[in-house]
Design a protein around this nucleic acid. Structure first.
Lengths: 198, 198
DNA sequence: GTCTATAAGAAGATAGAC
DNA sequence: GTCTATCTTCTTATAGAC
């Protein structure tokens, strides 16, 4: 099965590239870096991919397709608003656990890459994410699960940034599981760090 | 006064470079980009600076010297632990307001640049920041101002990341002052977003 | 699927004139 | 303090052999 073998090699190279892009940044990673890490010469990469750009494009698209499918599942469920928010937070940390490189690349490069036509879908996904969270939070306030005086827009940005920034220090397989981090995060987010009644 | 005029021009160029580094990233900004924005040719930049690297170095050093002087002042004060934490948070948002470009550059590039000997001081400053916050939070727990069961290390990373990430969307002079953001942030952080008693 | 060889352009930096 | 002119190196990408 030549196609399957070819596909595996593609995935392997993509995984190597993702690790380097995440660690050093897209621009700081040369095609020679990727080829070296894969044990081949830089020209050989072009048998598998059109360009360095198309590599990062494929990494980001694959990751985002999966992530937003998961968000859609939460939105479509009939859980109560607070449970939906918790689920959305948990699946985000799970995503950091499963695809740390893709998350890191997205966090570090999306702003810059999004300015190019080829990566316009990054801005669309950003708007889609905003819709998901604004819906969850607005429902939370309307049903009384969240404080009535909550600034929903500010809270959306707060959650978005604070969840995904964990990719900077979280290491899969380390002492702290993504479930434990999600629990701690939800505790801080939903109950605050001030002493009860303090 | 040739020195003063020279110094202003230096600062002007540094400010232009900082804006580009913050917007596009260090590696994505060429010396030609900087020169174009300043209305001169790229070669002329080297009358003022040794290299592109020395420009970002000066930007980051200046910013960090000021920031850590402010932290030291809070630490040395005789405010109670909760007030110190609030002050540290407020001065961080003020720093984002005053030096948004330097903060953005630090957030985006410190991890990568810190790997080079020349930028080793970035790792030192990182450790120093950790010490500041661990001290503030440990004091907070010991005096009963913060929950006794708080994971201090996790909370430190949480505060560090959540405060500085605001540089991604905060715009000085916009509808929201840095003081207002600090207040909202402290409300979420210290009281949580859950309904009282919910 | 990888290698050899190389083209084409971009980027950081320099020397000396003005 | 800036410009002209240019060097060198790095980087992406290509063509064709194996």
């Amino acid at each position: 099965m030549p196609e399957q073998s070819s596909a595996s090699r593609r995935d392997e190279l993509l995984s190597i590239a993702a690790g380097l892009f995440a660690e050093k940044g897209f621009k700081n990673t040369t095609v020679r870096d990727i080829a070296d890490a894969a044990g081949i010469l830089s020209g050989s990469l072009y048998h598998h991919f059109d360009s360095k750009e198309s590599m990062v494009d494929e990494i980001l698209r694959t990751f985002q397709d999966e992530l937003f499918a998961a968000y859609d599942e939460v939105l479509a469920s009939d859980d109560d608003p607070r449970t939906k928010i918790e689920r959305a937070v948990r699946l985000s940390f799970e995503s950091i656990d499963q695809h740390p490189n893709a998350v890191a690349i997205f966090q570090n490069e999306a702003d810059y890459l999004g300015g190019f036509e080829r990566f316009g879908y990054l801005a669309e996904r950003n708007a889609q994410s905003r819709n998901v969270w604004m819906t969850l939070l607005t429902d939370g306030v309307e049903t009384g699960a969240l404080r009535a005086d909550l600034d929903v827009t500010l809270t959306y940005r707060f959650i978005r940034d604070t969840v995904w920034v964990a990719v900077r220090w979280y290491r899969p397989g380390g002492g702290l599981s993504h479930e434990a981090i999600a629990n701690q995060y939800l505790t801080i987010l939903l109950d605050g760090i001030a002493r009860d009644g303090g």
